[in-house]
C-alpha cells in the first residue's frame, strides 16, 4: 500500500494544483495577519476560510482526482492486490497531500503570528475538516460511475453542509421556538461536520457573536473541555464512516 500512496503523492505533486493551493492558502492567511494588528481578529477571518473554502477545495479536488485515477485503479485491480488496499491507498494519498498543503499554507503563518491555543484549535479543525470532506468526496465518487454526476453530487454535499443545513436549523428553531428545543439542536449539530468544526474552533476563541445558535447551545450544554472533546470525536466519526462505506462499496462494485 505504501507504494500506491507514494505513487499517488508523486502524481499529485506533479500536477501542481496542490502547490498552487498551498500558495493560495499561505498568501491569504499571511495577508490577513498583515492587515490587522490584532492577531485574534485575523484568526477569526481564517476561521471563515476554514469553514467555506477548505471544504470546497477538499471535496472537489478529491472527487476529480478519484475519476482521473480510475485507469490507475483499473490497472491495479487486475493484479494480486486487495481492492480494499487500493482504495485505502488512494484515499490516504489524496488526504495526505491536502492535509500537508493545509498545514503548510495555514499552519506556518498561524504559528508565526498566533502561536496560541486558539491558533492550534483553528489548525486542528481545518485539518479535520479537510479529511472529513475528502472522505465524503470518496463516498460520492464510488457511488457514481459518471464523472460529471460525481462532481455534481460533491458540490451538492458541500452546499448542503455549508449553507443549507444552517437554514434548516433556523427553520426548526423558529417553528418550534415555544418548546425546549436545545437538546434537539445539540443533537442536530452533530449531523453537520462544518458545524462541528466551527464549534470546535470557536469554543476556544470564545467569540459568541460568530458561534451561531448551535455553537452557543453546544457550549452551554457541554462546557469548554467536554464540548471540544466531543465535537472532535464526532468529527472522527464523520471521517471513519464515509471511508468505511466507500471501501465496502468499492470492494463490491464492477469496474
Amino acid at each position: 500500500m505504501l507504494k500506491i500512496i507514494r505513487y499517488i503523492l508523486l502524481d499529485i505533486l506533479r500536477s501542481k494544483v496542490i502547490v498552487a493551493y498551498t500558495l493560495f492558502l499561505f498568501i491569504i492567511t499571511f495577508s490577513l495577519y498583515m492587515l490587522d494588528e490584532n492577531p485574534a481578529k485575523s484568526t477569526l477571518s481564517i476561521v471563515n476560510i476554514n469553514l467555506i473554502i477548505i471544504p470546497l477545495v477538499s471535496i472537489i479536488f478529491t472527487t476529480i482526482h478519484y475519476y482521473n485515477s480510475y485507469e490507475f485503479m483499473e490497472l491495479l485491480v487486475a493484479q494480486p492486490i486487495s481492492r480494499k488496499l487500493i482504495i485505502l491507498g488512494e484515499f490516504l494519498g489524496v488526504t495526505l497531500s491536502l492535509a500537508i498543503s493545509f498545514l503548510i499554507g495555514v499552519g506556518v503563518p498561524v504559528s508565526i503570528f498566533n502561536p496560541t491555543q486558539s491558533g492550534l484549535s483553528v489548525l486542528i479543525s481545518g485539518f479535520m475538516i479537510t479529511i472529513v470532506f475528502a472522505s465524503l468526496a470518496f463516498l460520492c465518487s464510488v457511488m457514481t460511475k459518471d464523472k460529471s454526476r460525481g462532481i455534481g453530487a460533491s458540490i451538492l454535499v458541500w452546499l448542503f453542509f455549508t449553507i443549507m443545513y444552517d437554514g434548516m436549523i433556523m427553520f426548526v428553531l423558529f417553528a418550534f421556538s415555544d418548546y425546549p428545543i436545545e437538546p434537539v439542536i445539540v443533537i442536530l449539530s452533530h449531523f453537520n461536520p462544518v458545524d462541528l468544526a466551527r464549534i470546535f474552533m470557536l469554543i476556544r476563541l470564545d467569540v459568541s457573536a460568530m458561534m451561531g445558535y448551535t455553537g452557543a447551545v453546544y457550549l452551554d450544554y457541554f462546557g469548554h473541555f467536554k464540548g471540544m472533546l466531543f465535537s472532535f470525536l464526532v468529527m472522527n466519526v464523520w471521517i471513519a464512516l464515509p471511508v468505511f462505506l466507500s471501501i465496502r462499496i468499492f470492494d463490491r462494485k464492477d469496474l
Binding site: 485507469e71 493484479q79 492486490i81
Partner: peptide, 26 residues
Amino acid sequence: DFRCRDFIGYMPQIGRYPDTMRVGQV
C-alpha cells in the same frame, strides 16, 4: 481471495493506463 491473481497474467481488450505515466513507469 485477491491472491489468486498471482497466478494470472491478463491482457485486456482495451488497455487503459494512466495517461500521465510513462511506459517504463507502468
